[in-house]
Nucleic acid binder design. Sequence first.
DNA 1: ACCAGTGTAATAGCTAACTAGAACACTAGT
DNA 2: ACTAGTGTTCTAGTTAGCTATTACACTGGT
Lengths: 126, 126
Amino acid sequence: MEFDDKVPIYFQIEQYIDREIIVGNLVPGAQVPAVRQLALTLTVNVNTIQRALTELIREGILVSERGKGNFVTTDTQVLAQMKKRVIQGELAGTYDHLAALGMAPAEMVAALEEYIKERKGGESHD
Amino acid sequence: MEFDDKVPIYFQIEQYIDREIIVGNLVPGAQVPAVRQLALTLTVNVNTIQRALTELIREGILVSERGKGNFVTTDTQVLAQMKKRVIQGELAGTYDHLAALGMAPAEMVAALEEYIKERKGGESHD
DNA sequence: ACCAGTGTAATAGCTAACTAGAACACTAGT
DNA sequence: ACTAGTGTTCTAGTTAGCTATTACACTGGT
């Protein structure tokens, strides 16, 4: 996996797992790959994986069962909140950054639409 | 100034100065505040300021004149490119992150509009 | 010649993030 | 009892980022 060297790996792994859950690759109650397996897959040390998982466990998104594995919580309330937090955070970040560039809200929307249009044109479709 | 403790301070300072230029608080040819002054204002060490400025100088956005100060380049070409890079980067980041959350382009625009609407409602206007 | 204001560079010390490796604790199957 | 597969913890060592401090180099005004 590719990491942004400007932000801590353990944090990017947290976000990665959040996304896997949101997208549905990891459903509520599902077992997360073993820490040693994740370490191999993401080419990162077990301790770094553990640090990310510990944080997700602390947040209640994952549940740890010693000797068995780590599992996605079945508390859909918590998962729904997480999803909202992630998406809101993304939009808020964009909004703040663009506002700091002197852009008005309407311009932001226009800029995003423009970006999407250009991107569609310049890419091969699936 | 407030920094995100997840990303290097020197990098955030680079972005800060980029924004000051884009917004027009720093015009082409203008002198950037002295490094020791910036260090005080942003409450960071001079070396950290210097690291950020060195990078901006390397990119041609600032021009250093020893004994006199650091100045915004008068090469509007370079500044225009920088502005485009910053904005495109912001949009691209948002796009990629939301796409990784399983969102289609049209949904992204809708989500942003919705976010702006909610934000306007919940805030006091200036 | 001096001095105040500027950028630049170098040293030393601290902490957070990451790695490597080993050990420990628990579960389930044989 | 053993073993394989899990999570958990600990120690040691490396590196990047940041701070503090000092020194050096240049400019412009007096």
